[in-house]
């Protein structure tokens, strides 16, 4: 019963995207507008490009940078946020400062990192890490700061040490909020990965696509855009699945109440 209901929902959700792609395919079939080539031609080029070693050359390094920068951002954001958030004094000193950092559009910090680190690898990692860190740091600080008093006192009465209370009570209790920061951080990290390629030295999927557009390689630009769009979407899906597994306790509890 539940499965058929879900299947029905998927089917209802699927007809519109299918119709949209079909509409694009048919209306562009004999397109003469140079900027909107037939979708069939784009698709041909897409397979030719991205099912070849071009994928290894252009896409894998981008994903690797994203993974390294994001992992560092998670580590700094969660550990730093937990330490700052558990001390009201540190929060008072640092939170407005971090808030200001975050109000700078992440992409606009890329030129700053270019001045600091040059155009290559270090700049990209630094910019991605910085961009990912900010939202994670802020949500972790908030989550850890606002731990439920009953949980804290229970831990205290049972003689847990300060560090045990931080890592075993305050941080797990903050996880639902931390995850919203992790998601935002991942989205921003993805954007900055591409921006660092647009603005830095020319390799990676972002640079490939922008150079294609600048050189009027219209088909290549379209395939790059579509690939980046799909990557962005897949990354989000992977994140959602991870969140659902990690926060099983929270989701289950919410469903009951």
């Amino acid at each position: 019963m539940r499965i058929t209901k879900r299947l029905l929902a998927v089917l209802i959700g699927a007809w519109l995207p299918i119709a949209l792609v079909a509409w694009w395919w048919s209306t562009s079939a004999d397109s003469t507008n140079p900027y909107f080539p037939p979708l069939a031609t784009i698709w041909e080029r897409f397979i030719e490009l991205w099912f070849s070693d071009q994928f290894l050359i252009n896409v894998v390094p981008s994903l690797r940078n994203l993974a390294i920068g994001y992992a560092l951002g998670c580590l700094i954001g969660i550990v730093g946020g937990a330490l700052v958030g558990s001390s009201p004094k540190a929060t008072a000193y640092l939170e407005p400062f971090i808030d200001f950092q975050r109000s700078i559009p992440a992409v606009a910090t890329v030129p700053v990192f270019i001045v600091l680190f040059g155009l290559d690898f270090e700049m990209r990692i630094a910019a991605i890490t910085f961009a990912a860190t900010m939202p994670i740091l802020i949500s972790t600080i908030q989550g850890v700061r606002d731990t439920n008093l009953v949980q804290l006192e229970t831990a205290q009465v049972f003689h847990l040490t300060r560090s045990q209370i931080l890592w075993r009570v305050r941080l797990p209790a903050a996880m639902p909020l931390v995850f919203s920061g992790l998601q935002l951080g991942l989205q921003i990290a993805f954007v900055v990965t591409i921006a660092s390629e647009y603005l830095g030295a020319g390799f990676g999927i972002g640079a490939f696509t922008l150079i294609a557009a600048d050189s009027f390689l219209i088909l290549d630009a379209w395939t790059g855009v579509i690939l980046m769009g799909l990557l962005g979407y897949v990354i989000n899906i992977v994140f959602d699945a991870t969140e659902r597994i990690s926060l099983r306790w929270y989701i289950g509890q919410q469903k009951l109440s």
Binding site: A9, I12, G13, Y35, L210, A213, F216, I218, W222, M228
Partner: peptide
Amino acid sequence: RFAFLSSKFTMDFFKVIPPIVIIPVTILV
């Protein structure tokens, strides 16, 4: 309900695609 379920997936898809991704095409157009 039908319209909501029909368009949810499509809108979610475009919602999570960052605009920076489509800049190369907008430069062309």
